[in-house]
């Protein structure tokens, strides 16, 4: 564990020095998590790939902003979340433009939701369906904590909310989710 942490710290030092190989290692370690996060947020394969790419490009450009190795995961999630919000704004802006130009919004490419692939069994589908009904803020908390494995402290860094608030909101989201599932059963 200590050796691994030491290696990671060494890797981070190399990234800060601008070494490409070290950054590739970082990508290998985190790209699946960031892509998964984007899939949960966008529900679109192509958009998730684009946003994952944007996230890592932004991370490479702003590697100076990273202070501590322990916060690497939350730092990447923070960038990813900001990229998602930016893209949402841009999409809304584009849609308004298209509306104003009296063009069909269906021109925006829609690709199948990658989440459908993981809803193989009935239980998973039921649970994903219930999660989808949560409020966006609660949905985000569930994703970050249970799917992405972020601790409360890391979530605080990503969302900019106090730890106590995050804990309370997760508890509330769980209760809501439970009530949704009880209704179904």
């Amino acid at each position: 564990m200590l050796v691994r942490r030491g290696t990671q710290r060494q890797n981070l030092k190399h990234i800060r020095l601008g070494r490409r190989k070290a950054y590739e290692t970082l990508i290998c370690q985190h790209y699946k998590a960031i892509y998964g996060f984007m899939v949960y947020l966008t529900g679109d394969k192509n958009r998730s790939e684009d946003l994952t790419q944007d996230t890592f490009v932004a991370a490479w450009a702003n590697i100076d902003g990273l202070r501590d190795h322990a916060s690497l995961k939350s730092w990447l999630h923070q960038i990813a979340y900001r990229k998602f919000i930016d893209s949402q704004r841009a999409t809304k802006h584009n849609r308004t433009l298209l509306k104003n130009m009296a063009e069909a919004t269906s021109d925006i490419a829609e690709t199948p939701n990658p989440l459908y692939q993981v809803m193989a069994d009935e239980h998973s589908a039921l649970l994903y369906d219930a999660i989808g009904k949560l409020e966006p803020s609660q949905y985000l908390l569930i994703i970050l904590h249970y799917f992405q494995g972020l601790s409360f402290r890391e979530m605080t860094a990503v969302l900019g909310r106090p730890t106590g608030t995050v804990k309370w909101q997760i508890g509330k989201a769980l209760k809501t989710l439970k009530s949704f599932l009880s209704e179904r059963v």
Binding site: R20, Y23, E24, I27, C28, Y31, K32, Y35, G36, V39, Y40, K45, E49, T52, Q53, F56, V57, W60, P114, L115, Q117, V118, A120, H123, S124, L127, Y128, I142, Y146, F147
Partner: peptide
């Protein structure tokens, strides 16, 4: 149950794409 839900798999081409963007 939430912790053990199947997660979406990243496409195999994504890693190469990310490497290419550095």
């Amino acid at each position: 149950r939430l912790r053990h839900l199947p997660q979406p798999q990243a496409p195999k081409t994504l890693k190469a794409r990310l490497f290419a963007t550095i």
